[in-house]
């Protein structure tokens, strides 16, 4: 009986695809090779190479997402047939070899919402590889930009202010600077506490891509939604997503001794409370502490977040604009800490 049903389903699927229009699919051979194709279309990730129409996979969003100059981000995962991702007991998602995480960037008010770039994070047998593609002027394909590029854009942030920046598409190495754990590339955003699978997707679809989709329990506060957590909780979520990919003991900023993961002790000196600058240079802004409780004006964490000067700004890569709203949240968090005390919460 089951076999008959399966055969029937297969027939239906073929019929819906239409014999004359065999659905385009991901070229798994390219995905799993060592290739760095000069054109994004080589992967077959989009229908008709339209970045709005993934050829496969499932869309996802994040509870808290990294600030990238107010870009809109569109994400999906492609996982090869017959394989599934699995959520580990520690909340880390294990994606099988052959998985592609696809993230596209653009602004609604730039080029009519046309996407600027698409970044791929590909899980190959040799490990994760990050490849940045910039969409061509005609929007028909995107071209590999291993060395990164600056793209001049003018856009409005949510507060109505106009920004004219030279948006930085990261180079391949810069992708790794953020996506690095002990020198190896890893995904940053997809953790059970932060990961939201397309809510419109049916359970059957979710189960197609995840062995245990119910284990995806996105509980992390949304930094700009007070209903999801206290100021301190939301500030910590913001730091986790915007800083902790480098600021952890195995990340690119391990030598700083400043560790900002959701799981780090938020009262400790290694969380920045009363922590003196390490290798900060001009980033200290003449201040003694990363976080001076009760005194955001003398907390150089704020100074660095509110700067766009490359010798001062944090994060070091990935933004040419100040995230005013994020900085305001952190200001409020620090201002509400008892002055002089070393307790953050």
């Amino acid at each position: 009986m089951k076999r008959i049903l399966a055969a029937l389903a297969a027939t239906l699927l073929c019929a819906s695809g239409g014999a004359a229009f065999a659905p385009p699919g991901v070229d798994q051979a390219v995905v799993e090779s060592d290739a760095m194709p000069p054109k994004l279309s080589a992967f077959g990730l989009f229908r008709g190479n339209d970045p709005g129409r993934p050829s496969t996979g499932i869309a996802y969003t994040l509870r808290a997402s990294l600030f990238s100059d107010y870009t809109e981000k569109h994400r999906f995962i492609a996982i090869p047939a017959g394989k599934k991702a699995k959520v580990g007991s520690d909340g880390v998602i294990d994606f099988p070899v052959g998985t592609v995480l696809v993230k596209s960037f653009g602004w609604n008010d730039v080029g009519g919402g046309r996407l600027i770039e698409t970044r791929l994070l590909i899980h190959r047998a040799s490990g994760w590889v990050a490849l940045p593609y910039i969409w061509d002027a005609d929007g028909k394909d995107a071209t590999l930009a291993l060395g990164g590029r600056r793209v001049p854009v003018t856009f409005k942030s949510p507060d109505g202010e106009t920004h004219s920046i030279r948006y930085a598409v990261p180079n391949k190495n810069q992708c790794k600077e953020c996506h690095s754990l002990n020198g190896e590339i890893v995904p940053i955003g997809p953790k059970a506490r932060n990961f939201i699978l397309d809510p419109a997707a049916a359970d059957a679809v979710r189960s197609r891509y995840f062995e245990n989709p119910a284990a995806l329990k996105p509980t992390m506060p949304i930094w700009d939604d007070p209903a999801t957590g206290s100021v301190a909780d939301r500030a910590r979520a913001y730091l986790d997503v915007n800083c902790a990919h480098c600021h952890n003991p195995a990340g690119s900023a391990s030598n700083s001794g400043l560790f900002l993961r959701w799981t780090d002790d938020p009262t400790g000196v290694n969380y920045g409370i009363g922590k003196r600058p390490t290798a900060a240079g001009r980033g200290s802004g003449g201040m003694d502490f990363a976080i001076a409780p009760g005194d955001p004006a003398h907390s150089f964490m704020i100074y660095r977040l509110e700067s766009t000067d490359p010798g001062i700004a944090m994060p070091e890569v990935g933004r040419s604009t100040v995230h005013k709203e994020g900085a305001a949240l952190l200001r409020q968090w620090i201002a509400e800490m008892p002055k002089g005390g070393q307790k953050a919460l």
């Binding site: 930085a168 810069q174 600077e177 490359p310 070091e316 040419s320």
Partner: peptide
């Protein structure tokens, strides 16, 4: 005229 990155050259 540097616009980005925390250093001139980074070796990892």
């Amino acid at each position: 005229g540097q616009q980005g990155a925390g250093e001139g050259l980074l070796v990892t």
